[in-house]
């Protein structure tokens, strides 16, 4: 694990997760520093036909209310977004969301690869990508795209994951900057926050 000197040039944090990631996401959102300056864009695997309930569950302990964006909605600093059920979620060059009902990718819609890759394309080296616990390889290619465009990559420590397939697939697919437990990810985000104060 290499040491990266953090700075305040980052523009967004993107998080992918699947089976076993819910608790980790809740913890990250609960311990997020107040006024965290970057948008947090999350794509978590979820039931396709259940539209309601997920953002509410994630918001209970979160410092910031989580929202599911509408198509074309502008991305705001400090907001936390979740990909809505049964839509893929991408980011456009003008920093707005684009939703789509295209084919499932890695058996998933929303697919983490789509969100991560589009963020990598738009934010390039100004992106932090975090991949948590999960039972398939969705997100591995997206993490590779983030790394290839010089973004910072973090995966959850596989031994801490309920299911480690996803972070392991990312580790196999590309160079990952940090392998961290959820608590360390929280500390990392706090450290990142300090760069903007």
């Amino acid at each position: 694990m290499k040491k990266i000197s953090l700075n305040n040039s980052y523009k967004a944090v993107v998080i992918g997760g699947s089976a076993g990631s819910f608790q980790g996401v809740v913890k990250i959102l609960a311990q997020l520093p107040k006024g965290f300056p970057l948008p947090i864009i999350m794509c978590l695997h979820r039931l396709k036909h259940v539209r309601n309930g997920f953002v509410e569950a994630l918001s209970i302990k979160s410092v910031v209310q989580v929202t599911e964006p509408h198509d074309k909605e502008n991305i705001k600093k400090g907001s936390v977004y979740l990909a809505p059920a049964n839509y893929h979620m991408s980011v456009e060059l003008g920093h707005s969301f684009a939703l789509s009902t295209e084919e499932m990718v890695n058996n998933s819609r929303p697919a983490i690869d789509i969100t991560l890759s589009s963020c990598a394309f738009v934010y390039k080296e100004k992106l932090v990508g975090i991949l948590l616990s999960g039972a398939n390889k969705d997100g591995a290619l997206g993490m590779k795209h983030i790394h290839d465009r010089n973004g910072l990559t973090i995966v959850q420590e596989p031994t801490e994951c309920m299911i480690d397939t996803m972070p392991k697939a990312a580790l196999a697919a590309t160079e990952i900057d940090y392998v961290m437990k959820v608590d360390q990810i929280v500390e990392f985000l706090k450290e990142l926050d300090k760069q903007y104060r």
Binding site: S90, V91, E92, L93, A98, S100, E102, I114, S118
Partner: peptide, 9 residues
Amino acid sequence: YAMSSFKRR
């Protein structure tokens, strides 16, 4: 067309 999906297609 919206760029992100047009590109993927």
